[in-house]
């Protein structure tokens, strides 16, 4: 019998944040099993799930090799994974400066990219006759975030320390939502060629590609 996976990852097909964690788990060669709470039954707001995350959101990770340690908020999870398990710094850094810079970009992703792209997707999909300024507000913010990334990536290959790290990976899923839903892929193709180069370099990695394909398969199912 196969060994139990080390982690349980609670995720959802539609939202990008669980997949971000899956990419890091797979890149680090950590084993996990994914559980998808039934959002249509609001299982993520039920008492069992709220014991795992009082905020009633995915992702949540449980580490069965470390006293079933339970953590939520995707980038807090990723920082836990790299601190504890990426000891040879495949996707993180051993030196203090780059550790700080990595965190800085991860906060920008979690507070600047995710929430705004998320509002854009919400109003595009669930819009209810709001004035077009509402969607535009969030599309403009999406463009602005991409232009900030472009301004940095036109001068360097990766966001931090001259190599791929979780600071880069955490942006990828939502940027694919900008392509698919918010702006169409022409925007990045035309206005942010270095962002496109950077996304493609990540997508070419087998671990990341595998996670993205799994999600696409489930989305189209």
């Amino acid at each position: 019998m196969a060994a139990q996976p080390q982690f349980t990852l609670y995720s959802t097909v539609v939202g990008p944040n669980g997949w971000k964690v899956a990419m890091v788990l797979r890149e680090l060669g950590l084993t996990y099993e994914t559980v998808y709470p039934d959002f249509s039954k609001r299982e993520q707001k039920g008492p069992e799930f709220l014991k795992l995350n009082p905020n009633g959101r995915i992702p949540v990770v449980v580490d069965h090799h470390y006293k079933d340690f339970t953590l939520w908020e995707s980038n807090a999870i990723i920082e836990y994974l790299t601190t504890k398990y990426d000891t040879d710094n495949k996707l993180s850094f051993g030196d203090f400066d780059n550790q700080q810079y990595m965190r800085q970009w991860m906060y920008f992703q979690a507070s600047g990219q995710g929430p705004y792209y998320g509002q854009a997707v919400w109003f595009i999909k669930n819009g209810n006759g709001e004035p077009k300024e509402v969607v535009e507000r969030y599309q403009n913010e999406t463009r602005r975030v991409i232009s900030v990334l472009e301004s940095v990536l036109s001068k360097q290959e990766w966001l931090v320390g001259g190599k791929l790290s979780v600071a880069d990976i955490c942006f990828l899923q939502w940027n694919t939502s900008a392509d698919r839903i918010i702006l169409g892929s022409e925007f990045i193709d035309r206005e942010a060629p270095h962002v496109r180069r950077w996304m493609n370099a990540m997508i070419a990695r087998p671990a990341i590609a595998a996670v993205m394909q799994e999600r696409m398969k489930m989305l189209s199912a």
Partner: peptide, 26 residues
């Protein structure tokens, strides 16, 4: 660093940064 409370503090800090701040800002 490395203690249970360390990671829990991180958890709530991220919750503020990605949830409370952006949503109250909207």
């Amino acid at each position: 660093q490395g203690s249970r409370e360390y990671y829990q503090t991180n958890n709530w800090l991220h919750w503020q940064m990605a949830g409370l701040g952006p949503m109250q800002g909207q």
